[in-house]
């Protein structure tokens, strides 16, 4: 078995399996809804509070809209994530890969121009966010090693993905796949888990806010 066959075969299965098992494990531990003691009598609608928290936090709220930091992070965050989702779910090689290995997708892949635009937007967002980790003394102070590893791994996965786009080189494709596998293995143990936990976090907080009839 060649290295590329190993990466595209058993290593892919291994990393994807590990990813699925541990992500599920983490989510199940969070979604453990067994009751613990009594709850305070609600003063408002918990469901409405949860839905409110889930939705309103997509945009900054007053009076924090006057903060440059808030807008910088929001705009860069959206640029990075939206660009990344387009690349992940609509780039030609990804669509082919998903349809070959997992399931058919109901949408067409994007054109090469679309890919380039999405990649530029996503890279710009990621670089803005990552640069801030070094430039802003406030963020520098709170950074964990994990934040750097997660950002760098994601950057490398994106970069190698762009390099492998032409599919002229098995080595570049293997390199990209190898980093994706590393990323998948690292994912459940890192801050990358926020991909799945952010809505839960918002819902949990909003549920409590709803109980108290306050707007968090």
């Amino acid at each position: 078995m060649s290295l590329i066959e190993l990466i595209e075969g058993p290593l892919w299965t291994f990393s994807a399996t590990l990813f699925v098992i541990f992500v599920f494990w983490r989510l199940i531990s969070i979604l453990d809804l067994r009751r613990r003691g009594a709850s305070p009598k609600p003063q408002g609608s918990r469901l409405a509070g949860a839905l409110r928290a889930l939705l309103v936090r997509f945009v900054p709220r007053p009076p924090f809209t006057r903060s440059g930091r808030v807008w910088f992070t929001t705009v860069a965050g959206y640029a990075f994530h939206l660009g990344l989702f387009v690349l992940l779910l609509a780039a030609v090689p990804h669509v082919e890969f998903i349809e070959r290995r997992i399931a058919a997708l109901p949408w067409e892949p994007i054109s090469r121009t679309g890919f380039v635009i999405a990649a530029e937007i996503s890279f710009l967002g990621l670089i803005m966010l990552y640069t801030r980790r070094f430039v802003d003394p406030l963020v520098r102070r709170i950074n964990r090693p994990d934040d750097h590893v997660a950002s760098l791994l994601t950057f490398i996965v994106m970069l190698t993905g762009c390099m492998a786009l032409g599919r002229q080189s098995a080595f570049l494709r293997g390199l990209h796949m190898g980093f994706v596998e590393l990323w998948l293995i690292y994912f459940p143990f890192s801050s990358l888990m926020h991909t799945f936990t952010w809505p839960i976090s918002r819902l949990v907080t909003g549920w409590e806010a709803g109980r108290r009839a306050v707007r968090w």
């Binding site: 531990s29 979604l31 924090f64 801050s191 888990m193 926020h194 936990t197 976090s201 949990v204």
Partner: peptide, 21 residues
Amino acid sequence: FGPKTTAWLDSCIRCGLCAEA
């Protein structure tokens, strides 16, 4: 530690916006 703690701590990406408040 409980499910809420895990949901919150797993979600922090160190954006630092909490400082603004």
